[in-house]
């Protein structure tokens, strides 16, 4: 996903802003990374260009 598209994403729990940590990107988009809530510190993974913003209690370890 393009970095510009991340702008309106927020933490599903407290709706606070997220900070981006890039792990892998190509010319176009972020492929792997982390979105970290600036309020509660919860971490949301980006994998294969898709951020996983499920609330932590709904995240199944197998796929997240």
């Amino acid at each position: 996903m393009k970095e510009t598209l991340l702008d309106i994403l927020c933490c599903p729990l407290d709706k606070a802003e997220l900070e981006l940590e890039v792990i892998r990107e190509d010319d176009e988009e972020i492929l792997e990374g982390r979105l970290i809530c600036t309020e509660c510190g919860e971490e949301y993974p980006i994998e294969d260009g898709i951020p996983n913003l499920l609330p932590p209690d709904m995240r199944d370890e197998a796929t997240a």
Partner: peptide
């Protein structure tokens, strides 16, 4: 962009 999330806790700003 595609985002994994749940209907009851939308990860989008107000």
């Amino acid at each position: 962009g595609f985002v994994r999330g749940d209907f009851d806790a939308l990860p989008f700003a107000t």
